[in-house]
Write a protein that binds this DNA or RNA. Structure first.
Lengths: 84, 84
DNA sequence: AACTATACCGGTATTTGTATCGCGCTGATC
DNA sequence: GATCAGCGCGATACAAATACCGGTATAGTT
């Protein structure tokens, strides 16, 4: 009747997204990228380390824009099972 | 020093996303699409009507997948000013 | 050694996302 | 005209997203 806790799989998915984003960031600093995407460095750090497993759509969109990656590219690599 | 409230622009952006999604849904029922995307009909309804201005990334990704639209397609039409 | 920059983590605070329930409305069918 | 299904909204409940602060660690510079 309320919002259920995130499943381990959802958390894993968040980790994957984080790893992917971190990889794409490359040498650029967290502070720089976060500022460019209009978010705090803490938030970006948590996203990259998977401690924010289900970030907001526009947050990821801004990041993808700054990092020069396609959203579809990100999503495709992260739609694991999604069974039934 | 805490999480600030959403700006009117962010809310407008959420409305735009909702309109876009509703448009793409076309004739299919909310119930059907929501079920296919793994979410409740209420949630989809709120997203479409802009009452959830900043939905989760994976939620939109699942919807985009079900509706057969590109995430980049959605994001591009919604990155309004984002100046400086 | 002191300083600086970058990164990580834990805690705290507030807003938002998501789910369920209940009520009202409309349209179709009986 | 009563019933039923589907859509919409408001209220309620809890978990999560995001931001800021303080502390810690590591590496590079002077």
């Amino acid at each position: 009747m309320v919002r259920p806790s995130l499943t381990p799989e959802e958390r894993r998915r968040g980790e994957q997204l984080g790893l992917l984003l971190r990889d794409v960031r490359g040498d650029r600093s967290i502070v720089e990228v976060a500022a460019a995407a209009g978010m705090s460095a803490e938030t970006l750090r948590k996203i990259e380390t998977g401690r924010i497993p289900t970030p907001a759509f526009f947050t990821i969109a801004a990041l993808a824009d700054v990092l020069g990656v396609s959203l579809d590219h990100l999503a495709l690599r992260l739609t694991p099972a999604t069974p039934a």
